[in-house]
Design a protein around this nucleic acid. Structure first.
Lengths: 351, 351
DNA sequence: AGCGGGAATGTAAACGTTTTCAACCTTACT
DNA sequence: AGTAAGGTTGAAAACGTTTACATTCCCGCT
């Protein structure tokens, strides 16, 4: 008549109930569950009691008492941007592997939403934050605004007072320019997002590389949407100064440019060569494939979590900035320019 | 000499400090902040004290005491799957709009990881869960396993004891078959994911539609990866029974199939017509564009949150199953079959 | 004038853990 | 044999809120 149910799924079973069931004190249950010093005999009893009762620790209580949230925040512009999608996955894997949880927030590049979420991070008492700030906030922020370590990703002006992991955007953009030059292109334009520091850095890399080649740079800045890129590109293509080749600062813009090129009836790469950022799978599937800089998104996420953990262990260590290189994936969109009538092949400018 | 700092950014400022600063009791501060009955005068004092002290409520404590986590869980296979990316964004928007937070988990279709995260949801005491279960777990699960409402998305066998919002997968697959038939194709194959109920339903829809047209169905099941799809498709294309057209059950598989078709030198749609699911942007960019069923992913996310909220308000109401329709976007990959020598045009089978 | 009722406020308990501290038991050493 | 040391265990405090309950005050009614 005293049969015990195998599992009780009703909540309200707390650590005290487990303790009573196991014939020990709540403190012992806590220690048994968190790997504290408990004799093997009692540990077994506790585990049995936990199983029998279906006990689930209350994380809110645990956090309140222990003052550790075991949570990291991830605040990015928009998870639908493939770069952030990949990043979030890498961050989550690292986090859950370390037994931590992730809170994900999309700011949509809106400083107000961003501020809201940063406040949320404080209220959650996150252990740390991985953060791709809007351009506006970057300059105003300061480590002392936060009670927890912050690691910047993707966007981080040099000299900003945070740990950061970024792509070498200038070098990457320059690499694209060099590649295009080597392939015989000269009238090379650029299209960059105007809201992010990333776009600005890539523009700098583009401009610098063009200068080094003695070429005149011609770039335009747009809002970071496919629609804006489409409009700008369509207008540009209609002008007399239409470029032979275009360097585009992210995959969203690239979509817009590609559609505009199609709409204008431009043939790639004969009428227009295209090179961009982010190795989304469609850049390979499109005909011809698009030459892009691939960002090591897994590395970026892992490195960011790594910096975070190291900072947590050693709060006073000097700031670190991890700069990763992009890999240039050459595809048909930048094939050798057939109509080029330059006398000699230019000095090999790639690499 | 008694000057007060404008903002104190150090934590450790709790509700008691605010109370002292405002000259009221902690209870009044709590009420003022949560919209309880407080005189205007005191409310103003409290707000001033909050601003002056930089007070941030501790969510762990709040949750512990109030027994409301203000958090919904979102457990999906992989955020990198564009369907889930969009879903997560829609869910998060709904959630944050309702003042709630979201915890996102990727199961990778691994029942073990899934079980781990479901346990986590219990420990977090989430208010509710939005869940795309693996096939294995679907049958074993039961609302009574959870202390909180669960809404299934994307995958939900009929008759499963949960609220759910799903696509009408059978109708959608049938729609693709009808479309292909109307365009003159007869030897229509199918490639479906073998791990999800979604794949199974789409297969059913395909088989049923083929039967109604008096055509012989020929489908294959693969693991839900682009690689598996590539391998299977490549093998299939090499056989004598190579289909004229292929219905593919998700965008990941579609990538594999497309690559295999390219590798086999098949020309679309002359050698092979292709129709799939999920209107990823690349399906439009590829040449020719791919005919797909577009899932109303925003609606799905919003509806799921809607069901969740309604269930929270009224726990006893009968189960609801929201079935949404996909929209067929016709592109070049299913252009009218030129080489068709059928005597008469078949009865209009579309729609 | 007395009294009932409602709104605003304060006091203190409660939420479910972890952790400090003291007590206890064993073991080994002098 | 006595005691120091070390390892297990339990009692109780603490974490920072919300909320039940008591109190006070003010108003209007009889």
């Amino acid at each position: 008549m005293e049969k015990k149910q195998k599992t009780i799924s009703v909540t309200g079973v707390g650590i005290k109930d487990v303790a009573r069931l196991a014939g020990v004190s709540p403190a012992t249950v806590s220690r048994a569950l968190s790997g504290g010093p408990v004799s093997e005999a009692l540990r077994a009893q506790v585990e049995a009691a936990v199983r029998a009762s279906g006990y689930r620790p209350n994380l809110a209580a645990r956090r309140l008492r222990s003052q550790h949230s075991g949570t990291v925040g991830l605040v990015v512009a928009d998870i639908r941007n493939p770069f952030f999608t990949g990043l979030s996955r890498a961050v989550e894997d690292s986090a859950y592997q370390a037994g931590m949880r992730v809170i994900l927030c999309n700011t949509d590049e809106d400083p107000q939403r961003e501020a809201l979420y940063l406040r949320l991070m404080q209220e959650e008492r996150v252990s740390g934050l991985i953060f791709a700030p809007t351009r506006a906030s970057m300059s105003t922020l300061d480590q002392s605004s936060f009670e927890f370590p912050v690691v910047l990703v993707d966007r981080a002006a040099t000299g900003v007072p945070f740990d950061a992991v970024v792509l070498d955007n200038r070098a990457a953009a320059a690499q694209l320019v060099n590649h295009l030059v080597a392939r015989g292109y000269r009238r090379i334009g650029g299209l960059f997002g105007k809201t992010s520091i990333t776009g600005a850095e890539r523009r700098d890399g583009y401009v610098g590389a063009m200068q080094r080649h003695g070429l005149e740079s011609a770039y335009r800045l747009v809002a970071p949407t496919a629609e804006a890129a489409y409009a700008e590109a369509a207008a540009w293509f209609a002008e007399a100064t239409r470029p032979q080749a275009l360097v585009v600062s992210n995959s969203l813009l690239l979509v817009g440019v590609l559609k505009a090129a199609r709409a204008a009836g431009l043939c790639m790469p004969a009428d227009l060569a295209l090179a961009g950022f982010d190795n989304d799978n469609w850049t390979e599937l499109v005909e011809p494939g698009i030459t892009v800089i691939e960002q090591p998104v897994d590395d970026i996420g892992r490195s960011a979590m790594g910096l975070l953990f190291e900072r947590l262990q050693e709060p006073q260590r000097p700031l670190r900035r991890v700069v990763l290189s992009g890999r240039c994936i050459v595809r048909g969109s930048t094939a050798v320019l057939e109509t080029a009538v330059t006398g000699a092949v230019p000095q090999e400018a790639e690499r």
